[in-house]
Amino acid sequence: MKLFCEELPSITKRHLHRPDLYENAECILCDKAEEDNLHIFTCKREGDEDPIKDLIIKFKIILREKILKNKPQTKELLIQNGLNTVTCLNYYGEADYESTKHSPYFAFFEIIKGYIPDILTNKITEICKDKRMAVRIIMETFDDFQTILKNIWKERCEKVIEWEKENGITIRAKKKKI
């Protein structure tokens, strides 16, 4: 819910509220970008080539598995072609990142936040020929995908805690009045 409402305690938010403890809003994992709610999930923390592309692939794999679990006779090509027509699941690399991040059109970043585009529901309904099944598939997919995002968040939190300890930022320091 905090991700959906853009209320995760990112470094940007921490810097805003405690600039005395957090000198800037830069991501501590990559030192290249401001750490906002989306950057947490798209950061190249370990030198990943393109974390967004990786998340899209994982989302499509989960979605494909859920379709096949609920409707096993579905042809792979039908699923692949159907998913390729869902524009927010098409991402062509880092050149797209800035243009799609703040785009007025629905992009994968909204899926990361938890929004479900109508086009996705319509496409899964078209593939399965059953709207109730499509809704169930999408809900199961989003549940599994949220687990992936939670693991990314957990890993990031562990590294931030380690960084805070190295920089003398303690709970007591956080509670002190400016």
Rank of each mutant, 00 (worst) to 15 (best):
A173T: 13
N24Q: 09
D54I: 06
E49N: 14
E140W: 09
I40V: 15
K71E: 01
V86W: 11
I127W: 00
L29E: 04
E140C: 12
K53C: 06
A173K: 15
E49S: 10
K75Y: 04
W153Y: 07
R64N: 12
N81T: 14
I52T: 14
G93M: 07
P51D: 10
F145M: 14
R156Q: 10
K53L: 09
K165F: 08
T12A: 10
I138S: 03
C30Q: 00
S103G: 03
N81I: 14
A107K: 09
R156P: 02
Y97R: 06
A25I: 12
L77H: 11
T85G: 02
F108V: 09
S103T: 05
C43V: 03
L149F: 03
E140A: 05
I57R: 01
I62A: 05
E23K: 08
C5F: 06
Y91L: 09
E46R: 03
A25C: 07
I57Q: 03
K60S: 11
F145G: 11
P51T: 10
H17K: 05
E76M: 08
R14Y: 09
C43P: 00
C27T: 08
E26V: 07
K123I: 14
T147V: 15
K13C: 01
A95G: 13
N24I: 13
L16T: 15
L29M: 08
E76G: 00
E126P: 01
I56S: 01
M139I: 15
D48C: 08
R156D: 02
E166K: 12
V135P: 02
Q80P: 03
D130Y: 05
E34T: 12
L68E: 12
T12Y: 10
K113G: 01
E26T: 14
T121V: 13
K75V: 10
G82A: 12
K129S: 01
K159T: 05
F145W: 13
P51I: 02
L29G: 00
N70Q: 04
L16K: 14
E158I: 11
D54P: 03
P72T: 15
E26G: 04
I40L: 13
G93N: 07
R18V: 09
I169W: 03
K131R: 14
E158H: 02
I116F: 07
Y22S: 03
P117T: 12
A107T: 11
A95I: 15
E155K: 06
D143E: 15
E46Y: 09
F59W: 03
K174D: 08
I124T: 12
H17V: 08
F108R: 04
I138K: 04
A25E: 15
K175S: 07
I67C: 04
P117C: 07
E6Y: 00
L83Q: 00
E158Y: 00
K69V: 14
C27E: 09
K131I: 14
D144A: 11
L16H: 14
V135I: 15
E35F: 05
I161C: 13
L55D: 10
S99R: 12
R172Q: 06
P9R: 09
C30N: 01
D31M: 07
K113Q: 09
L89T: 08
S10K: 03
Y115R: 13
E46N: 07
F59K: 01
